[in-house]
Nucleic acid binder design. Structure first.
Lengths: 218, 218
DNA sequence: TTAGATATATACATTAGTGTCAGTAGTGAG
DNA sequence: CTCACTACTGACACTAATGTATATATCTAA
């Protein structure tokens, strides 16, 4: 009798997710791997183990490793874009300082966006847009919104708009940098880390609001 | 007759470098690969081809791929450390603003330090020191120097020193961020890129000098 | 010139990771 | 209940990258 090829003992009971859920779980696991071990840690077999599936299942859902990475990029970018849209909608001038910074920091840190963007930027040093989203346009939108809030819809000069856009970009870069290397540079212990970060953001927020609100140049 | 195992045709004339030179050339090539294609592009065979050697030669000099990467890290970190030391030596209060920023930007961009640090931070999310160098201590040194320059060696308060250290860290994070994602966020075309960056740095420098020099808190 | 040291080369072994294939098992619709 | 659909699996093929073993060429020093 030929040894049975099929059942082979009792394989683990199979759990069947909807395609959507499966994709989400896989992406979450991949994100976790990226956060914890860097780009090299994104390995189909390990991700599959995390999720509790076999690695060909990942290929079934994403086509290839590259497809998975692209989906990872796309998800993060759209999360950020939605975030920004929400900001643009909930337009309140007063709380814009610290709250915007905290929100940005949250997206960069907790959602792992900073790492993802950094990795992406390393892979594609010359890219100008990602997933159909145009970062300069986002920056410009935010800048113009802030301009109009400050000056009450008056026409603002080009120089002024550039300064505001500098401020926006500084905020983004700072939160990006903080997410990636903030811990390394901070002298604070693990307990005071959060408090110190908050103080830093408050300080930065003050700095930006002050400099941008006062149209004092030079 | 057994086919000859030895000479096999005329192989390319062999160039012999000193170990030091060989190591440097290999590291340079690896750095270039990292800059252009990200971490995944660091492959022994390709690096070897760039240098014009066989890949086992790299292993001869660095022991393993990991050894090469560690050497890459070490070189960059020490370059940065030396840079900082030089700053601390050439202590002039006046030009400290824009020149320090430009110098930082140069190290981050042209020497590829930003990419290397980003990659390193992604691989070792929980590291506190690298290659025996303690970033918080560097930050503190610079902060104290700036403090004493401003206040003429008076005793400065702890709060004040924190503010200054915030400024230093903001500068580092901003230049780090600019090196990695500055191009993506900038609306400027390739020609005006440099000019715009310079304006941005000048603006940031003003911002920092202004805020830090004036001990006006709240 | 010779001898030792070592930088470098060729050829090969090994492994790890992606991708393929053919079959299995949940699930929902009729 | 049956059937079609597809998420899922195990086994395997393939590739590419690291690392090893051993030989050779080139430099320095005596």
């Amino acid at each position: 009798m030929p040894e049975q090829k099929k059942p082979v003992g009792a394989s683990a009971p199979r759990r069947r997710r909807s395609a959507e859920v499966a994709r989400r779980e896989i992406l979450d696991a991949a994100q976790r791997r990226l956060d914890e071990g860097g780009p090299d840690a994104i390995r189909l077999q390990e991700i599959a183990r995390d999720v509790g599936i076999a690695h060909p299942t990942i290929l079934h859902h994403f086509g290839s490793r590259d497809g998975l990475i692209q989906a990872l990029d796309a998800r993060a970018i759209h999360a950020l874009s939605d975030d920004v849209s929400a900001m643009l909608q909930g337009r309140r001038a007063q709380d814009s300082g610290i709250e915007l910074l905290e929100r940005l920091a949250h997206t960069m840190n907790d959602l792992g966006l900073a790492r993802l963007i950094a990795w992406w930027a390393m892979r594609e040093p010359n890219a100008r847009a990602l997933e159909g989203i145009d970062p300069p346009a986002l920056v410009r939108n935010i800048s113009q919104l802030i301009c109009s809030q400050i000056e009450g819809d008056e026409a603002h000069s080009t120089e002024r708009e550039e300064v505001v856009s500098f401020g926006v970009r500084l905020a983004v870069m700072a939160m990006f940098g903080e997410a990636l290397i903030g811990d390394i540079m901070s002298p604070a212990g693990a307990e005071q880390r959060d408090a110190e970060r908050h103080r830093f953001r408050a300080w930065l927020s003050d700095l930006l609001v002050e400099k941008i609100a006062d149209p004092r140049d030079d």
